[in-house]
């Protein structure tokens, strides 16, 4: 579903990703952990080309993102992304946030888009907030709307970049719950997070990144119980 081959990314002379190789199978939930600045966000953003690829390849269902001829807008409709800072559109209501892209990009009729949007809001438990503006929502509610907005495009893959890091502790649970549900339904997910509980419970595989490399990857129980690399051990000793 996602295949990353020899991916490298530099900002100027600063090489942030150094030869990343990963494959993600359909319906798999891959959790990415690692210290700050290790390149987790950059890696995730290369998967939907929010960052250009300096070298190597990223394939989404066989389509090479590094190929200049690839229609990136089309690929992005298949890859949803949820940001740490929510990035809801403040000038639009909750339901308008969700309806906008299906209507403008997929050319779905307003009525259908609305119906679908309301169904998604029901799914994330926010049906009553359809006509509210984002500013009036709590952080947890905003993030759930952001997830619903991404799902409205019916993506095959969902990317999460620290979706709960900007939340007050009491709101983390409600967002993780939605993500858990999504995983259960078989969504292919790549999740950057510091929530080790979530990684353990929901992840099929955990990737530990450091210094622009994938240092170690394994099923959660193995990686957390029996880390093999020195750097993994020292990182886990700090966060667990």
């Amino acid at each position: 579903m996602i295949k990353v081959r020899n991916l490298k990314k530099s900002f100027g002379h600063h090489e942030v990703l150094k030869n990343i190789n990963v494959s993600v199978q359909p319906q798999e939930v891959v959790v990415v952990i690692g210290p700050s600045g290790s390149g987790k966000s950059t890696f995730l953003r290369c998967i939907n080309l929010l960052e250009t690829i300096s070298d190597g390849h990223v394939y989404i269902e066989g389509i090479d993102l590094a190929d200049k001829k690839t229609d990136i807008n089309k690929v992005r409709t298949e890859v949803g992304m949820v940001f740490q800072q929510f990035n809801l559109f403040p000038h639009k209501t909750v339901i308008e946030n969700i309806m906008l892209s299906p209507m403008k990009v997929r050319k779905v009729a307003a009525e259908q888009a609305r119906e679908k949007g309301l169904a998604l809001l029901r799914k994330v438990g926010l049906e009553d907030k359809a006509d509210a503006y984002p500013d009036s929502l709590s952080g947890g509610q905003k993030q759930r709307v952001a997830i619903a907005r991404a799902l409205a495009m019916e993506p095959k893959i969902m990317l999460f970049d620290e979706p709960t890091s900007a939340l007050d502790p009491e709101m983390v649970g409600e967002v993780l719950e939605v993500m858990k549900q999504l995983a259960k339904e078989g969504m292919t997910m790549v999740v950057v997070t510091h929530e080790m509980g979530f990684a353990r419970e929901v992840g099929d595989r955990v990737i530990f990144m450091d210094g622009g490399f994938i240092v170690e990857e394994n099923v959660p129980s193995e990686l957390f119980e029996n880390p093999k690399e020195e750097r993994t051990i020292s990182f886990l000793s700090k966060v667990l």
Binding site: N48, L50, T77, F83, Q85, N87, V105, A146, R149
Partner: peptide, 26 residues
Amino acid sequence: DRGQMEAARSLGMNHLQAMRYVILPQ
């Protein structure tokens, strides 16, 4: 905020659509 353009693009909008529906109104 840069995140507005990124969110719009990640939803599949092209640059023009993102400008027109997300950036310019704000």
